[in-house]
Design a protein around this nucleic acid. Structure first.
Length: 576
RNA sequence: GGUCCCGUAGCUCAGCAGGAUAGAGCGUCAGAUUCCUAAUCUGAAGGUCAUAGGUUCGAAUCCUAUCGGGAUCACCA
């Protein structure tokens, strides 16, 4: 089902017989941009003639021989530039489209993963408040990536790490406690700077008041803190899960830092490092720009992350015996390894990019370099509305939440928006664009294409005087398709498996977004096509065979759009 | 200052593991509606791919340096 791959394999296998000593990895086999360069082209003659100091004509003749027997080609020529250009017979393309129609939602699938377990950790936002726009990009990026990995045969585990331990959680609990006190007092309560001011804590406090009354009033902190931490975390995690649900993001596993601590995983990982002699007592330099007197000269326990490619050794245990945030993270990744994950992917916000080197170092250390951690970062998102930037300040909880954007433009638009740029490029987005129902709005444009194709099937009775069924499409005689636009669309569909493969190997789902937009564009062009200055009618009673052939082709487009949108987590709409 | 990301059309961005004449949307200008969804389409104008070197048959793509923009620096997460 991947034409390109099929012929490339033949080429490489055959070349290997004669030139097994040569590195053939530079040899390409692709759809040339310019149709005058044939249907496929390869640089094989160019590359090998150079390497072997052979005449390129000679290599060309050899290559030509590989393909001649199949009878699939009209012509194979050596271009002046040195490329070998292949002109394929029509039936090859028609057979391909029939394969797409038969395979339906499985078109584009490849077994690249062969069932390999892969762990993708994304979001992992601290449970101190609802998700905001900053989390959204990583959430959608990670989820889309997971979809694509799953599609190509990996055994994907989608995971969320809950940082439910440490100072921030105590602060969360204290913030909720203040809101709780407010429920029993007329006096306005002031929330200190270091605590969380968000109003989402009010219902949490209300629930505690309702269920436990005045039980925690006038009590020492030690009497209520644990309870408030527990209640707050579980309530905030419910908010977060509901945020994720609004984007149809569903993690398989939530792992709690607190649990890792309680079950001894952190101690175990620490001992692990100790046994390998990767820990030592020492000091660190104060960070640039900080005041010297705020810096304690006490001795901490450091992990030799420099041995594994980091540029500093990192503190794992503070002088007072407390863990740093880093140590549980190490334990967590050891735990992933122990659960059988050799391959792990983490999605970080760009503000955590400084953390990449130490995390990779830790995974190497703790797994004896057996596991591979890959980290993808998502750059910032800047939202605007009608050309004006949306101000985002964390003060007073006035940041834009994930829910607000989903409510404003809808799940599909948000998902598309977040993967419509390369992950490591900054993202500027105007809300208004995604509310438009026109060409400005790419998600609309793609859905419109699919809706138009669906309308053909719906209208077939009226326009052709008969219903179109699956077997009509599969049996359609595609030789009736003789138009350049039709050929262009066939090649575009044929490129889908490659786009999928690249999205996986580069971990760049945005490629899929661009692909779908381009495919939709070719479709819309075709829809408006004029021959002899007259608009074509796809459904034309007087040209039944041609009509069926056209619908068959467009149905293959629809299949591709639906699969692509599905991977992006977006509905394919049949009627607007 | 160190590290990471970015720099391609007026704007927002693609550019496939180095390939043939650099692409799309928006915006601008000029057009298309006896039509199955015009919520669409066609055409035109628009480029020193930040700059300078290097690698090679061949560079927007790889390497080095410089300039510009952003993020980050912990005994916070």
């Amino acid at each position: 089902m991947d034409i390109l791959e099929k012929y490339k394999n033949i080429l490489i296998v055959e070349l290997n017989k004669s030139y097994s000593n040569e590195d053939l990895s530079n040899i390409s086999f692709e759809f040339p941009r310019d149709t005058s360069h044939g249907d496929f082209s390869t640089n094989a003659a160019l590359v090998l003639s150079k390497k072997l100091k052979m005449d390129s004509e000679q290599i060309f003749l050899e290559v030509k021989k590989f393909f001649e027997d199949s009878g699939d080609f009209k012509d194979i020529v050596l271009a002046k530039s040195g490329f070998i250009n292949f002109f394929v017979k029509d039936y090859v393309l028609h057979d391909f489209i029939r394969e797409v129609l038969k395979n339906r939602e499985n078109f584009g699938k490849k077994d690249l993963g062969k069932g390999e377990k892969i762990n993708i950790e994304y979001v992992s936002a601290n449970p101190t408040g609802p998700l905001h726009v900053g989390h959204t990009r990583g959430a959608v990026f990670g989820d889309t990536l997971a979809n694509i990995f799953d599609f190509v045969g990996f055994d994907v585990c989608r995971e969320y790490y809950i940082n439910d331990s440490g100072e921030q959680i105590r602060n969360l609990a204290k913030s909720v406690y203040l809101r709780y006190l407010q429920n029993f007092s007329d006096k306005e309560i002031v929330i200190p700077d270091n605590l969380y001011p968000g109003e989402y804590l009010i219902p949490i406090a209300k629930k505690i008041s309702d269920e436990h009354g005045e039980k925690f009033l006038d009590k020492a902190e030690s009497d209520w803190l644990d309870f408030f931490m527990k209640e707050s975390i579980s309530s905030v995690m419910n908010i977060i899960k509901s945020d994720l649900k609004s984007l149809e993001i569903d993690h398989d596993v939530f792992i709690s830092e607190k649990t890792l601590l309680e079950e001894g995983h952190v101690n175990k990982a620490y001992k692990h490092l100790e046994d390998k002699k990767l820990l030592y007592k020492g000091n660190t330099n104060p960070p640039k720009g900080s005041k010297k007197d705020e810096w304690s000269e006490k001795q901490h326990i450091l992990f030799k992350s420099k041995n594994f490619g980091d540029d500093e050794d990192r503190v794992v245990k503070k002088h007072d015996g407390q863990w740093t945030y880093f140590m549980p993270d190490i334990a967590y990744h050891l735990n992933k390894y122990e659960r059988g994950f050799i391959r792990m992917i983490n999605i970080f916000g760009a503000d955590h990019s400084g953390y990449i080197a130490r995390m990779k170092a830790a995974v190497k250390a703790v797994t004896n370099e057996n596991a591979n951690l890959e980290i993808k970062t998502c750059q910032l998102v800047r939202l605007s509305r009608g050309g004006r930037p949306v101000k985002m300040s964390k003060r007073a909880g006035s940041f834009i939440t994930l829910k607000e954007i989903v409510n404003e433009v809808g799940k599909d638009a948000v998902r598309f928006m977040m993967v419509s740029r390369k992950n490591d490029a900054q993202l500027d987005f105007d809300f208004e664009v995604f509310k438009n129902e026109n060409n400005d709005n790419p998600i609309f444009y793609i859905q419109y294409a699919n809706a138009r194709i669906s309308s053909l099937i719906r209208n077939s009775k009226e326009k052709l005087g008969r219903d179109i069924e699956d077997k009509d499409l599969i049996n359609a005689d595609l030789a009736f398709l003789q138009n350049e636009n039709e050929k262009k669309i066939i090649f575009q569909i044929a490129n889908f498996p490659k786009v999928i493969e690249q999205s996986v190997t580069f971990m760049e789902p945005h490629r899929l977004s661009y692909y779908l937009r381009d495919l939709a564009s070719s479709f819309h062009q075709y829809w408006n096509l004029k021959i002899d200055n007259k608009r074509i009618h796809i459904l034309d009673k007087s040209e039944m065979d041609l009509s069926l052939a056209r619908v068959a082709l467009l149905f293959a487009v629809s299949i591709t759009i639906q699969t692509g949108l599905g991977l992006l987590g977006i509905e394919a709409i049949e009627e607007l």
